Computed example of a mutant assay.
Amino acid sequence: MSQVGVTLPFDGLPLHQHREAIERLADAGISEVSTGESNGLDALSPLLLAAAWRPELTLTAAVVSAFTRGPSIMASTAAALAEAAPGRARFGIGAGSDRIVEGWNGIPFTKPYSRVAHTLRVLRATLSGQRASTVAESAAALGIEDFKLGRPPERPPALVVAALGPRMQRLAAAEADGVVLNFLAASDVSTVRDAAAGVDRQLPDPLAVQARVFVVTGEGDPAELAARRMIAAYLSVPVYANFQRWLGRGEQLAEMAEAWDRGDRAKAVEVIPDQVVHDLFLTGSPRDIAPRVRAYLDAGVEIATLGVLPPYGVKASPSDQVDFLCELAAALWSDAVT
Results as ranks from 00 to 15, higher is better:
residue 163 A to Q: 11
residue 233 A to W: 09
residue 39 N to M: 13
residue 151 R to C: 08
residue 32 E to A: 14
residue 113 Y to S: 12
residue 164 L to A: 15
residue 178 G to D: 07
residue 118 H to F: 14
residue 332 L to T: 02
residue 70 G to F: 03
residue 317 S to H: 12
residue 264 D to N: 13
residue 11 D to T: 12
residue 55 P to M: 09
residue 181 L to N: 00
residue 236 S to V: 13
residue 51 A to F: 00
residue 289 I to Q: 09
residue 274 D to Q: 13
residue 199 V to I: 10
residue 224 E to F: 04
residue 94 G to L: 07
residue 62 A to C: 04
residue 44 L to D: 00
residue 221 D to W: 14
residue 7 T to S: 05
residue 299 A to P: 14
residue 103 G to K: 08
residue 7 T to W: 12
residue 90 R to M: 12
residue 82 A to K: 01
residue 67 F to D: 11
residue 167 R to M: 06
residue 137 E to W: 00
residue 154 E to P: 00
residue 4 V to Y: 01
residue 142 L to V: 10
residue 94 G to T: 14
residue 185 A to Q: 02
residue 264 D to L: 11
residue 93 I to W: 01
residue 316 A to G: 04
residue 146 D to I: 13
residue 36 G to A: 14
residue 34 S to Y: 06
residue 333 W to R: 13
residue 180 V to Q: 13
residue 187 S to D: 11
residue 307 G to P: 01
residue 173 A to Y: 08
residue 240 Y to A: 11
residue 229 R to H: 03
residue 93 I to D: 11
residue 4 V to S: 09
residue 155 R to H: 10
residue 312 Y to M: 15
residue 285 S to N: 07
residue 69 R to S: 08
residue 217 T to M: 08
residue 27 D to Y: 04
residue 100 I to F: 11
residue 261 D to Q: 11
residue 150 G to F: 05
residue 198 G to H: 08
residue 21 A to M: 14
residue 299 A to E: 13
residue 201 R to P: 12
residue 148 K to C: 10
residue 225 L to V: 11
residue 51 A to I: 04
residue 77 T to S: 15
residue 33 V to A: 08
residue 336 A to L: 08
residue 314 V to G: 12
residue 319 S to L: 00
residue 329 A to M: 12
residue 214 F to P: 05
